[in-house]
Design a protein around this nucleic acid. Structure first.
Length: 276
DNA sequence: AACGACACCTGGAGGC
DNA sequence: TGCCTCCAGGTGTCGT
């Protein structure tokens, strides 16, 4: 579910609640795969006494550096979310793991579909995580020239490339559709057929779409909540995603839905001309 | 090496 | 009301 803006918001709100807090080492596990099948006591042993020193986001990972040199990382996948609650608060039915803090609170991970993952990484493992991902959309080193070169390097369709985290990090199904709609590029257009001009426009559109979503606290379709439990509002601004059959805001043509790379894909068949 | 298909899960929505 | 099928903010793995 969550893409860059939602993960950014989730990380920010989680960081705001637990930066400076210390894990006491207790870990209550209801679904073991959430922590990669590492036994709860092993995970807790590594976590005990570690203080959260800040928060970051890398791609769609929430990254919490710890005072012991390790890093607590979490991927929300489709339905994951965090909540920070007093220890005596009742567990949520969809809660998968709870981590105790020394101040009497717990960091709880709630995840309907059980796809989310939480790991404790050493510095080399964190470096690997970083290396496995492409540039952040807002990284100044991602320039129109490097982006165009990335697109030129593959004949895969552009929608698929936008979703490839090793090419550019953080874009998911919603913001891929929204970005392509903005620049009137058909989702099936081969990446290496975009002109330098179009590639430049697309990069700007990606940044604009993500920036607006971040400002609105992300998008909530059904499950997404930040770590305070709040929904985002960006879903009210969608121009293509989820608007199947509704009129295009530019030309009035009904938005169409097709499948690209096994993902529902929304576009305006008039504005976004099919590749030939 | 790169790409597509499928697996992993639950539950809400819509059709009959 | 109940059952059944389809669908969902993602990505790791496997076969071609």
């Amino acid at each position: 579910m969550p893409e860059l803006p939602e993960v950014e918001q989730a990380a920010r709100t989680l960081g705001a609640q637990i930066s400076g807090a210390t894990f006491d080492g207790t870990v209550r596990v209801s679904w073991s795969r959430t922590i990669h099948d590492i036994p709860a006591d092993t995970f807790g042993g590594l976590l005990a006494g570690a203080t959260v020193t800040g928060w970051q986001r890398r791609a769609k990972w929430i990254v919490l550096p710890l005072s012991n040199g390790m890093t607590f990382v979490a991927h929300l996948r489709m339905t994951g979310r965090f909540a920070v609650l007093p220890r005596d608060e009742a567990d949520d039915a969809q809660q998968r793991v709870a981590f105790g803090l020394t101040d009497g609170r717990e960091v709880r991970f709630i995840d309907q579909r059980k796809f989310g993952r939480i790991r404790l990484l050493s510095a080399p493992e964190l470096a690997t995580l970083d290396a496995d991902h492409g540039p952040e959309p807002f990284d100044p080193s991602l320039t129109p020239a490097t982006w165009h070169a990335t697109l030129q390097s593959t004949s895969r369709v552009i929608k698929t490339v936008l979703l490839d985290q090793s090419r550019i990090a953080g874009i998911g199904n919603i913001y891929a559709d929204e970005s392509l709609y903005r620049v009137s590029v058909h989702p099936l257009k081969p990446a290496n057929t975009l002109s330098k001009k179009k590639a430049t426009e697309l990069l700007a559109a990606i940044r604009a779409v993500l920036r607006q979503a971040i400002e609105n606290g992300g998008s909530t379709l059904r499950d997404y909540r930040d770590s305070y439990g709040a929904k985002g509002t960006q879903q009210d601004n969608f121009q293509a995603y989820g608007r199947t059959g509704q009129p295009c805001g530019r030309c009035g043509t009904a938005i169409e839905k097709i499948t690209v790379g096994q993902r529902g894909t929304h576009f305006c068949p008039y504005c976004q001309k099919a590749p030939r």
